[in-house]
Design a protein around this nucleic acid. Sequence first.
DNA 1: TAGCTGATTGACT
DNA 2: GTCAATCAGCTAA
Length: 192
Amino acid sequence: MPLPRAFYLRPPRVVARALLGCVLVSRKGRTLTSGRIVETEAYLGPEDAASHAAFRPGSHALFYGDGGVAYVFLNYGMHHCLNAITGPSGRPGCVLIRALEPLDGRATMARRRGVAATAPRLASGPGNLTRALGLSLRDNGADLTRGSLTIEPPPGRTTFRIAAGPRIGITRDVARPLRFWIAAHPAVSRRG
DNA sequence: TAGCTGATTGACT
DNA sequence: GTCAATCAGCTAA
């Protein structure tokens, strides 16, 4: 069972931490790929200058709607990034999913990435992650509580330490400590 | 219509 | 550490 809508109807900071350890599942045709979320970043509403809710029109309808919806965008002309919209309608915010530890479909991810299945960090980094799962702008607006792109609760008991720090790669509001990752996890993207 | 910017990556020096 | 690849959607004209 995917995480319920209510999971997402909370502030981005809370959802970002809660998503660590959860499993992102992508179904494309008969192919299933999944991975454990090990790294996220929170983006707030217009008060957060780095958030697309603040300066990226076109994403407004998604940001201001109910949470639990995928927001996929293209940047630098070649990389897709996957976000989960958070908060109830009228409370914009989202969580950028930056890195996964591959679970099901490792071979498929490796093929999509064009690397060996044994390669480390198959889905580490927002661009790599979306490529490994076969995501594109067509997945923008997808409902994360049902359908082909969902997020499941952590399987079994999982304990880990959550580390926090400044977000990576942004040019506005650089200092806010809104990046969260599983401490010492090998699949966390290295930059920063 | 042209020009600019960006929540990146990988290849190269 | 530097740099090119490449595009959606803005802005200026």
